[in-house]
Design a protein around this nucleic acid. Structure first.
Length: 830
RNA sequence: GCGGACGUGGUGAAAUGGCAGACACGCCGGUCUUAGGAGCCGGUGGGGAAACCCGUGCGGGUUCGAGUCCCGCCGUCCGCACCA
């Protein structure tokens, strides 16, 4: 008897997470707790988190943090009565997997399923409410079949095309490298200087959508996104207003160019107002006009220069600022001054931006100034600051476009920069030598990769019919399982070596043709995965129309801000295209997006080399998933991240132990028949703070509010059932297994997730008697307790009854009284 | 260089323009104990015996009142980076 009581007390005292968590994970699976009815759900809520790349190391604590934060929100919505769909999948194609596979010498097709199995185990262990029926992997043929289908839709709509583009090339590994594999101009594997090569690549015309992608960012009805993310996208799109100007060749140069008098060099500039100061032109080294322009005697130095440029990889070319270039030997005519100006080539002008050519205005552009100084080119001032002489010498480029007036600029003289811009654009248009345009920094999306581990681009090349799309009924074009998937020195994908696969009949004429050997970019896989989740069981369509209407767009999307630009922009683009092609009825895929913060460890970034990587499994094994979840959500604001320190985790664990005891008290006694008023108020305040905190993803303060409530209950010796039950419900999103177990102990036969989210009475969130801070000249001198909503006179009277207040007011006259009801009284004494 | 975020105790962090440091960790003291790396109780920004004074990176400003708003610096982190 005695023993029994002791046992019971011990069992009561501390919470044993391991058994409890296993029990509830089993029950959730058995009961289908986390499986909404996708066809009949009445209040659908699509709660999405960015799917992980299944690395060999397993989920790291950053993933856990992100997924838990998203799961907490999903569970919160569930408790608010929504039918929450929370799917998970794996972004398993791509260079990461391929490189890792090369390193360890195991085929990715073998490696990935192993990694996924490990991820699945970890994701289950953390207790997220995933609907596993809808799991997907981008490497699954039933998935990438539809990625290929997506390519075909864009191809058929004229939104995909092929053109030559530069890639990084390692001459030792004899392979194409992604930008992130180039470290300081060297190949990350063998440290060989990386070169650039030009290859034919597939592109999507995302630039067609630049204006729409930009406009929606300001449309709150479509997009409720973190400000930092929309700003990043705005910068990436890089809209700039300016003009296109066409320069003719001067007579001498035109003489030796084929079609000389008709050749025009088109430039883009944001400062057309400085046209009179344009003293030379610069073309990108690979500009198609260069060869035609350059007289014979210049050809050799141009070839040498191009060679020099080609030896630099793309990355260092974009970071090395030392200006280089050569004169082409040709001259153009400045349409404003009518003077001949030399045409140079230099790699500080990028072929990818604008027209690949610029008019150089060294007086008013830093780069042009630097270049002109180095090569002794003319520098002319055409803008002078207020009070500055028109001929004041230029020590550096004067780039301020808000101050100053035009000088040495003919009919523009005396105008401000904005006035001059308008005037010169009007003049250009009248003269037919240019026009005002909007230009974007955004480039078309290069989707081809000369790699193995991705979905083959579904195109066949026929000698007679050119690039032919693979008919949809022949999809998927399966990625063949080849032993040696290492890229080789041909510069084309390893797939080209697989003859049986490579040669295939032309879909049009049936003659022998060749398959496209490039695979598509991983970002294409992830640009539409949210559409697949609700429809994973359909193998005859990428996404079911009714399902998509019911569940999309995604209600809340959570992920890292490292994807602020590429993934999120590509997904938006694909949604717009599918919308325009009539496949979906929305054109923005993610209604609400929030970026989570980053976890650091004891003040430093986690990294393998530092040896400070937190392995979640160990912590979960030691403390339990719920404690771990609580700690992750408590260590800092979810959207800012925080510092993971081992000592901190005991706080949430002690808190759960206290709640466990409280539940035990309630089950045993349920005795607190009369609740103290301040406890009642605290209870309602807590419900308010937790509800608002979870909605705003401020989990750390929501947890703090619940801790305060528990401290109050313990201090007041209260274990009233309604309070404790509501506490358990509020805790359920954060500590789901724990809450389920408590709920059961409290006598409920159903899941706590069938319960209703607690409501609060706003009137009860404020005390009847309030403490008002009394300040004298803005400094706190006393606190007085007055009835709630007491008027100013009453508060002043109460304040002046206070000895300390009187002392500070002293002999002075109260000149002004500031009264914030229920909070503060400030007496300003003259 | 451009863009963004941020700067508060010993630590992680709280604060609709209104009591700076909630909550938690750690630490100190007490209690219980054969024991304590468990639990419980109390304390914990700095100075001061106290009354009080000083405190949110630095310097100005707005305001009755500023961690919060404005201007200018300094520093940290994250993007982008010769974008014409």
């Amino acid at each position: 008897m005695t023993d029994q009581i002791t046992d019971q007390t011990t069992a009561d005292r501390t919470y044993q997470p391991e058994a409890v968590e296993a029990k509830w994970q089993r029950r959730w699976a058995e009961r289908g707790t986390n499986q909404p009815d996708l066809d009949r759900a009445e209040r659908p809520f699509y709660n999405l988190m960015m799917f992980p790349y299944p690395s060999a190391e397993g989920l790291h604590v950053g993933n856990m943090f992100a997924f838990t934060g998203s799961d907490v929100y999903g569970r919160f919505k569930r408790l608010q009565g929504f039918d929450v769909f929370e799917p998970i999948g794996f972004d398993a194609f791509g260079i990461h997997s391929e490189n890792f596979a090369l390193k360890v010498g195991v085929h990715p097709a073998e490696l990935i399923p192993r990694n996924i199995a490990n991820f699945r185990r970890q994701l289950t262990r953390i207790g997220a409410m995933f609907d596993w029926r809808h799991e997907l992997s981008t490497t699954d043929p039933t998935y990438y079949k539809w990625t290929q289908w997506l390519f075909l839709q864009l191809f058929k709509a004229g939104k995909a095309y092929k053109k030559a583009a530069a890639v990084n090339w390692c001459p030792t590994c004899k392979t194409v490298l992604a930008n992130e594999q180039v470290v300081g101009g060297l190949c990350e594997r063998c440290d060989t200087p990386v070169e650039q090569r030009t290859l034919e690549q597939w592109f999507f015309r995302i630039t067609e959508y630049a204006d729409r992608l930009l406009a929606d960012l300001d449309d709150k009805s479509k997009m409720d996104w973190s400000e930092t993310t929309t700003t990043a996208q705005r910068n990436w799109l890089g809209r700039s207003e300016g003009a296109r100007i066409r320069f003719a060749l001067d007579q001498a140069s035109a003489g030796h160019v084929v079609g000389g008098p008709d050749v025009r060099i088109e430039v883009f500039t944001t400062r057309p107002d400085t046209l009179f100061g344009a003293t030379y032109l610069v073309l990108a080294p690979e500009h198609p006009l260069v060869d035609a322009l350059a007289p014979a005697e210049a050809q050799q130095r141009i070839a040498a220069y191009r060679d020099q440029v080609a030896r630099h990889d793309l990355v260092s070319r974009k970071t090395n600022r030392e200006k280089t270039g050569v004169f082409t030997g040709a001259y153009a005519v400045n349409p404003a001054t009518k003077r001949p100006i030399p045409i140079w080539i230099a790699d500080y002008v990028l072929m990818e931006y604008g027209t690949g050519a610029i008019m150089a205005v060294p007086g008013h552009d830093e780069r042009d100034f630097e270049f002109a100084e180095k090569f002794g080119l003319d520098i002319v001032r055409v803008v002078a600051a207020e009070g500055e002489a028109a001929d004041a010498p230029l020590e550096q480029a004067f780039t301020d476009d808000e101050a100053g007036r035009l000088v040495h600029s003919g009919f523009l003289d005396g105008m401000s920069v904005p006035e001059a811009k308008r005037a010169i654009v009007a003049w250009l248009e009248r003269e037919g030598v240019g026009e005002g345009v909007v230009n974007y920094r955004l480039h078309d999306w290069c989707i081809s990769r000369q790699r193995y581990w991705g979905p083959p681009i579904p195109v066949v090349y026929c000698d007679e019919h050119g690039a032919v799309p693979v008919p949809e009924d022949q999809l998927p074009v399966l990625l063949p399982e080849i032993e040696d998937f290492r890229p080789d020195d041909t510069g084309v994908s390893p797939l080209a070596r697989h003859e049986e696969w490579y040669f295939t009949p032309c879909p049009v004429c049936g003659k022998r043709a060749r398959r496209e050997t490039d695979v598509s970019d991983t970002f294409l896989d992830s640009a539409w995965y949210y559409l697949r989740y609700p429809s994973t069981e359909f193998d005859d369509r990428p996404f079911d129309a009714a399902r998509t209407r019911k569940w999309c767009p995604v209600a809340t999307y959570i992920g890292g801000n490292e994807h602020a630009v590429l993934h999120l922009l590509y997904s938006r683009y694909i949604a717009m295209v599918l919308h325009d092609l009539g496949y979906v009825d929305f054109d923005e895929p993610f209604r609400r997006f929030r970026a989570h913060g980053l976890i650091i460890k004891e003040g430093a970034k986690m990294s393998k080399s530092r040896g400070n990587v937190v392995v979640p499994d160990e912590y979960i094994a030691r403390w339990g998933a719920d404690t771990f979840r609580m700690y992750l959500m408590f260590l800092g604001p979810f959207q800012e991240g925080g510092d993971f320190r081992d000592e901190g985790i005991s706080g949430p664990r002690r808190f759960l132990d206290k709640v466990w005891q409280l539940v035990g008290d309630t089950v045993r006694e349920d005795a607190c028949d009369e609740m103290r008023h301040d406890v009642l108020v605290k209870w309602h305040q807590t419900k308010k703070r937790v509800t608002e905190g979870l909605e705003e993803l401020r989990y750390n303060t929501a947890i703090a509010a619940m801790m305060e409530l528990v401290n109050t209950l313990r201090e007041a010796n209260c274990c009233a059932r309604p309070v404790v039950e509501s506490l358990v419900v509020m805790l359920a999103p954060l500590a789901p297994h724990f809450a389920e177990e408590c709920w059961e102990r409290l006598g409920h036969a159903t899941s706590v997730f069938e319960a209703r989210w607690p409501t609060f009475d706003p009137a009860l969130t404020v005390e009847q008697a309030v403490e008002v801070v009394v300040q004298v000249n803005g400094k706190t001198r006393a606190k007085v307790t007055v009835p709630r909503d007491a008027d100013q006179a009453a508060v002043v009277a109460a304040a002046l009854a206070d000895e300390a207040t009187r002392r500070f007011v002293g002999e002075g006259e109260v000149r002004k009284v500031v009264h914030v009801p229920n909070r503060l009284l400030n007496l300003v004494v003259g």
